[in-house]
């Protein structure tokens, strides 16, 4: 289905995740972050968002453990930056599909 986020028409699924990552803009990220009660977005948030987008484009599944091991962001910091479900919120803000893993 289509919806308007930050004055842009985008395709989203029923949980509000963008279905086409190429429709994503930084303005959309700000708007979704505000809705998810995350932020205001800092450099650390952007570091995570851009990393998730890069990995998604490369077809790699991202987990909290991999984020921690890659040195992008520690698990503690990730939970502090995106409170209340860090990976799924970060993915939604980054305009990529909801992570499907259990770990």
């Amino acid at each position: 289905m289509q919806t308007t986020i930050a004055e842009t028409t985008v395709d989203v699924n029923e949980e509000g995740y963008l279905t086409d990552p190429s429709q994503w803009t930084e303005a959309i990220a700000h708007a979704i972050a505000a809705e998810e009660k995350v932020g205001p977005l800092t450099d650390d948030h952007w570091k995570v968002i851009h990393h998730l987008r890069e990995k998604q484009a490369a077809g790699e599944e991202m987990t909290i453990r991999r984020l921690n091991k890659s040195g992008v962001i520690s698990t503690k910091e990730l939970y502090a930056l995106f409170p209340g479900g860090p990976l799924k919120k970060a993915a939604r803000i980054a305009g990529i599909p909801k992570p499907a893993g259990c770990i």
């Binding site: 987990t63 453990r65 921690n68 698990t75």
Partner: peptide, 18 residues
Amino acid sequence: ELDIPPVGEFLEMISDAG
């Protein structure tokens, strides 16, 4: 292979997660 951590690291993850 499934990226499931060993017990010690798993407990650390849970503790880091609050």
